[in-house]
């Protein structure tokens, strides 16, 4: 059978969601941002809440997220996405609100806003992309950089005595009473992508319950910041990032998951 006989509209099983604009993504080849953009938009399409969703983009590589997501979006000052989302959600409690932030934004300059939003139990979804580095500005050390990990400001590896310990934001916010669903996922293999999509779906469904904040961390690669090919960076991420940032649910339905 010829390929042309298979390529017919009735045989379609997967295509790019219409919730993404036709603009080419500005991210590097192989970057996890593209997958998370697509998953978020697919979830909105499946839940049929595209018209009722407001996104808040952050500062970082994802600063232009509003160019790629075909929904109502705003762009918050550096680190203040959760503060902006608080205002939007309190004005329109029946709308679905989410923030899309990286580790430089959420875990560094926005730590105070993030922790207090989680503690207040604001009713929106936080999507947090953790790649352990400041990708947009040229691969400098971030709060989430692993001990011994090389970056452009730690060329000999991060020394814990001098530069302190990396911060596990997801475990931190899971301890706060305001969070309802806290999980950590990744998007480097098809199985992990499908799990991450389920997590994002739960995080949006939870907004109907008015029980608190849903926090989804996605451990992603930054192949240009890590100076590797996309395939190598995913292998490096499996070997080095996952032992420190273990995948899985940390808090489900307001209860900490005991392992």
């Amino acid at each position: 059978m010829d390929v042309k006989d298979i390529i017919k509209p009735e045989n379609l099983v997967y295509e790019r969601t219409k919730n993404l604009t036709d603009k080419a993504l500005s991210y590097c080849p192989g970057c996890g941002h593209g997958v998370v953009h697509r998953l978020t938009m697919e979830v909105l399409e499946e839940l049929q809440i595209t018209q009722d969703t407001i996104g808040v983009a952050s500062v970082g590589c994802s600063v232009l997220a509003y160019e790629f997501m075909n929904i109502d979006m705003t762009q918050a000052p550096h680190g203040r996405a959760t503060a902006a989302a608080t205002g939007i959600k309190r004005c329109w409690p029946d709308k679905y609100v989410f923030t899309y932030q990286g580790d430089g934004d959420l875990a560094a300059i926005g730590t105070a806003e993030t922790i207090h939003s989680c503690n207040r139990g604001e009713n929106f979804t936080v999507i947090f992309i953790n790649n352990g580095i400041y990708g947009m500005t040229g691969g400098q050390m971030a709060p989430t950089t692993l001990p011994g990990m090389k970056s452009s400001t730690t060329p000999y590896g991060r020394e814990v005595e001098l530069m302190g310990n990396p911060i596990k934001m997801t475990e931190l916010v899971a301890q706060l009473p305001g969070t309802y669903y806290v999980t950590r996922q990744s998007v480097h293999t098809p199985a992990n992508v499908r799990k991450a999509k389920k997590a994002i779906r739960i995080a949006f469904e939870n907004q109907k319950l008015n029980k608190g904040l849903s926090f989804v961390e996605i451990v992603s690669n930054c192949n240009s910041g890590w100076k590797m090919t996309p395939v190598d960076s995913n292998i490096w991420m499996e070997e080095n990032m996952f032992p420190f940032y273990p995948l899985g649910d940390i808090k489900v339905n307001g209860e900490l998951v005991t392992k």
């Binding site: 006989d5 298979i6 390529i7 017919k8 045989n11 379609l12 099983v13 997967y14 295509e15 790019r16 969601t17 993404l20 080419a24 993504l25 991210y27 080849p29 192989g30 970057c31 996890g32 941002h33 593209g34 997958v35 697509r38 998007v187 480097h188 293999t189 098809p190 992508v193 499908r194």
Partner: peptide
């Protein structure tokens, strides 16, 4: 392939 593609390049058909 389409699920892991970061740029949404691939469209899949099946029979």
């Amino acid at each position: 392939c389409a699920v892991v593609c970061p740029d949404g390049v691939l469209t899949v058909y099946r029979i």
